[in-house]
């Protein structure tokens, strides 16, 4: 990936930002790994995920980039930091990882890294540098297409004439509807969790 960025000379800034965001992502990811303080870990994770959103923007996937910012940086991590703040006790704030778990973690993570690296280098397209005309930096406006696909219309495939092929291209309305059923279940579960806490203390006071 780094090699690729270096080869793309015509658009210097594209390469520059790629290296910049990639370094930020990797550096802060390592920061998460080597830090012992859970608040710092959360902060490093914010920066790492934010920088990877930058990579998505560079790749022209602005919808994914925006989602990355909104969901991970905006939602999940704020939740994480609030969770840490609410349960902040000294023994939870600093995490000491036993050496056995380090070995296990490095083994599992290392295997995945090796697998991904070896596979990534097997793909010829990704190894060979592109010529001068190979890179196009037009921005792809995918958000509205994705939005339409959620309502069941694949606007990017409307020109498909083949009935057989068109049949498999109905959008993502049904999955979108199923997600609302997920939310219903989650709400019921959350209501129950909130209710038990009160009841538990109430019965505790009586008993």
């Amino acid at each position: 990936m780094m090699l690729l960025a270096a080869e793309v000379a015509p658009s210097f800034w594209h390469g520059f930002f790629f290296v910049f965001f990639a370094l930020l992502t990797c550096g802060f990811a390592l920061g998460v790994l080597f830090s012992n303080n859970i608040v710092r870990m959360a902060f490093y994770l914010v920066l790492s995920l934010g920088a990877s959103a930058g990579l998505f923007f560079l790749a022209g996937a602005e919808f994914v980039g925006a989602m990355q910012l909104m969901i991970y940086v905006g939602g999940t991590l704020v939740l994480l930091i609030f969770g840490v703040m609410l349960t902040a006790q000294s023994r939870f704030i600093s995490m000491k990882t036993p050496s056995g778990e380090w070995v296990l973690g490095v083994a599992v993570g290392g295997c995945l890294l090796l697998l991904l690296l070896s596979v990534a280098f097997q793909v010829k397209d990704w190894r060979t540098p592109r010529g001068k005309g190979g890179l196009s930096l037009e921005d792809s406006k995918t958000s509205s297409q994705i939005g339409m696909a959620f309502t069941g219309v694949r606007v990017d495939k409307l020109d498909q004439k083949n009935e057989q092929l068109a049949g498999g291209m109905s959008g993502y309305l049904l999955p979108f509807v199923i997600v609302s059923v997920h939310l219903l279940v989650v709400l019921v579960g959350a209501a129950y969790m909130a209710r038990t806490k009160r009841r538990a203390t109430a019965t505790g006071a009586v008993g």
Binding site: P175, I178, H182, V185, G189, Y192
Partner: peptide, 19 residues
């Protein structure tokens, strides 16, 4: 996409039921 959200429709109610 459909397969994944369906699998989640198996997982999420399981958490609630366990609880």
């Amino acid at each position: 996409v459909f397969l994944f959200v369906s699998l989640e429709l198996v997982s999420i109610p399981t958490y609630v039921l366990l609880y």
